[in-house]
Amino acid sequence: MAFMSFLGRLLFVSVFILSAYQEFNEFGDDGGPAAKHLKPKFNAFTKNVAIHTGFELPRVEMNHLILGAIVMKSLGSLLFVLGSSFGAFLLLLHQAIAVLILYDFYNYDADKKEFAQLFLQFTQNMALFGALLFFIGMKNSMPRRLPKKKSPPKSKAN
């Protein structure tokens, strides 16, 4: 059963590992294609946050955001495969930040083609989010194994 659990966690994080590996290989001086794709979406997200909350997010370099995402996905995946709840929390944090920015279906009308594509990707990533929450919940609900107490040695009758 332990091997099946390990294999399941490994297959689950393959999405994050492959994504981090691809972003790392394409990173370059400017952050690569991921930074070019993220910049307009991040600007639209910060504008939406400022309009709806009145709070302005600090200016951030795209290179730093992409590098942070690579580190969070890599470290979170490694720890998650080893069965750590902290790894799951890192992946949850990454999903919470990235999904809201990358899959901005809320910026499109419901009858547009982009809306349907982005909403589908958003819901798929929410399924990953839910699986991570499930893992954390199951990990925290399992009782810790207590070492068995050794019974005192039996005295020999003379």
Rank of each mutant, 00 (worst) to 15 (best):
F6S: 10
L7S: 10
L10H: 04
L11S: 12
V13N: 02
I17W: 06
L18P: 00
L18C: 06
S19V: 02
F24T: 15
E26M: 07
G28N: 09
D30M: 07
G31Q: 05
G32D: 03
K36L: 15
K36S: 13
K39M: 15
N43H: 06
T46N: 14
K47M: 08
V49T: 05
A50L: 13
T53D: 06
E56W: 05
L57N: 00
L57K: 05
N63R: 08
H64K: 06
L65T: 03
L65I: 05
I66C: 01
M72N: 07
M72Y: 10
K73C: 05
S74M: 00
L78T: 08
L82M: 15
G83A: 10
S84C: 04
L90F: 03
L91T: 01
L93R: 06
L93G: 15
A98V: 14
V99K: 09
V99D: 14
I101S: 05
Y103R: 10
D104S: 08
F105Y: 13
Y108C: 00
D109Y: 09
D111Q: 08
D111N: 14
L120Y: 14
F122D: 02
T123L: 13
T123F: 09
T123C: 07
T123I: 09
Q124R: 13
Q124W: 00
Q124M: 13
N125P: 11
G130Q: 00
F135A: 02
P147Q: 01
K150I: 11
P152F: 12
P153D: 11
K154G: 11
A157P: 04
